[in-house]
């Protein structure tokens, strides 16, 4: 039979190291920043998956 998973995609859970890093940088409000960043990165990744954008310009202007 088919091995296709029917479950929902795993919830994005930032790694413990990242949580600790964020805590050191942003202190008590780090969870808020982490939440916005996670959502933003997810949007970026999803857009790139869906639209398959190509680099422009092809060669970097500045190395």
């Amino acid at each position: 039979g088919s091995q296709k998973s029917t479950g929902a995609p795993p919830i994005e859970r930032p790694g413990e190291r990242r949580v600790a890093e964020m805590k050191k940088l942003y202190g008590q409000d780090s969870a808020k920043i982490l939440a916005i960043e996670t959502a933003m990165q997810l949007t970026f990744d999803r857009n790139c998956d869906r639209k398959q954008p190509k680099y422009w310009p092809v060669i970097p202007l500045k190395l």
Partner: peptide, 10 residues
């Protein structure tokens, strides 16, 4: 170009 990725360093 319909879809593009721009390098922030450019």
């Amino acid at each position: 170009q319909k879809e593009a990725l721009i390098r922030c360093h450019d």
